[in-house]
Amino acid sequence: MSLDKIIDRAFAPAFAAVERRDIPGAMLGIVTADGQRDVRWKGHAQIEPHEESLSRGTWFDLASLTKVIFTTTRILHLVEEGRIALDDPLITAIPDLRQYDMSAAERRLTFRQCLAHQTHLPAVEPLYTYGQDPSTLRAFILQRVWRSGPPVYSDINFMLLGIAIERITGQALIDQPLPESLSFRPVPRLCAATEHCTWRERVIRGEVHDENAFALGGASGHAGLFGTIDGVLDFAQGLLDGSALSAPSLEVVRTRESETRTVGWEGSYPGWHGGDVCSPTTIGHTGFTGTGLWIDFERGLAWSLLTNRVHPSRHRDSGIVDLRRATGERVIALFDGRTRP
């Protein structure tokens, strides 16, 4: 089956979700290791305060895809350059981490542990409620006595990694070099809107939706990256064809650090967001705004579903979990030459 027919049928659940007004807009892109690519989209980049339609060039707030597309990849490039090792402690780059307590648990955390979410740090903290001075908030993150708990998916892990990148490179995250179709500073009028933020008292468009990333200056290790569908697919193709990372780094992102996680990514498991027919080598990640990327290395196939499901409010059921799974299962089934109703 040709790629254009595959994507037409695989896009059906997202098409229906837009028709039902579960989500304002959706875009599905598929790319293969040999460079075949196709994209479909429907709906609106914005519905409030006025309607604007999506186009292939619409930029999306990628939310936690920042963790894998930017932060994980940048850390692995620094490893490839010999500037750090994955099992080095963070204090290699951030010697002032918990500097008032030399025995603090945070001083023993490694890059690998943070990337794989194998730390004691909490999932999230409303840092933006403590102020909006980025330098002070960074200092707060470094000196905070964090509550301890079992390993969880943690934004704090990636905030620390973002600070480490800034220290190692001597360059703020928002100024880090990026491919043309990815940016921490998008043109707002080209972006899909996210939420009507009760804190900022406006519809968010072209500035990061995540409140903590906004308070940290617009970019953090856990959120802040924007991209077009082609920017996301370019990145995915680079992983599939081996041009984005060295062979050892690719092996790292494909190797489990826990039952469900690799370095940076999630690995496929029963019931996960990518659907239940992915190969065991599939990795993926999602973003709170309604984004997602999945890479099936066994099939040489990747797909990205980008939506603005939090527009105009996160406080409703958009059905995004079921939509992601249904889309992934159709992509794989059709790619394998099967048919789905």
Rank of each mutant, 00 (worst) to 15 (best):
G57P: 00
G57A: 14
G57S: 14
T58E: 02
T58I: 02
T58M: 01
W59R: 11
F60N: 04
D61F: 05
D61M: 03
D61S: 02
L62I: 01
L62C: 03
A63T: 05
S64Q: 07
S64W: 00
S64N: 06
S64V: 07
L65D: 12
T66Q: 04
K67S: 09
K67I: 07
V68D: 10
V68L: 10
V68R: 08
I69D: 00
I69K: 03
F70D: 09
F70P: 06
F70V: 11
T71H: 10
T71V: 12
T71N: 09
T72L: 10
T72F: 11
T72K: 04
T72H: 05
T73M: 10
T73E: 09
T73V: 08
T73A: 09
T73P: 01
R74H: 13
R74I: 10
R74A: 15
R74Q: 14
R74E: 15
R74P: 00
I75G: 09
I75P: 06
I75L: 14
I75M: 10
I75K: 09
H77F: 03
H77I: 05
H77T: 12
H77V: 08
L78H: 06
L78M: 13
V79Y: 01
V79R: 11
V79K: 03
V79W: 01
V79T: 09
E80Y: 00
E80G: 14
E81V: 01
E81M: 12
G82Y: 15
G82P: 11
G82F: 14
G82S: 13
R83H: 09
I84K: 07
A85I: 00
L86A: 07
L86E: 07
D87R: 12
D87A: 06
D87G: 12
D87T: 13
D88W: 03
P89D: 11
P89E: 14
P89R: 15
L90D: 03
L90Y: 02
L90G: 05
I91Y: 08
I91F: 04
T92I: 00
T92V: 11
A93D: 07
I94R: 06
I94N: 09
P95E: 04
P95N: 08
P95I: 01
D96M: 06
D96R: 14
L97A: 07
L97P: 10
L97T: 08
L97G: 08
L97Y: 04
L97D: 06
R98L: 01
R98W: 00
R98S: 14
Q99E: 15
Q99Y: 00
Q99M: 13
Y100L: 13
Y100P: 00
M102G: 00
M102W: 04
M102E: 14
S103V: 05
S103L: 11
S103W: 04
A104P: 10
A104E: 10
A104C: 09
A104I: 04
A104Y: 03
A105Q: 08
E106P: 06
E106I: 06
R107L: 02
R107W: 03
R108M: 05
R108K: 13
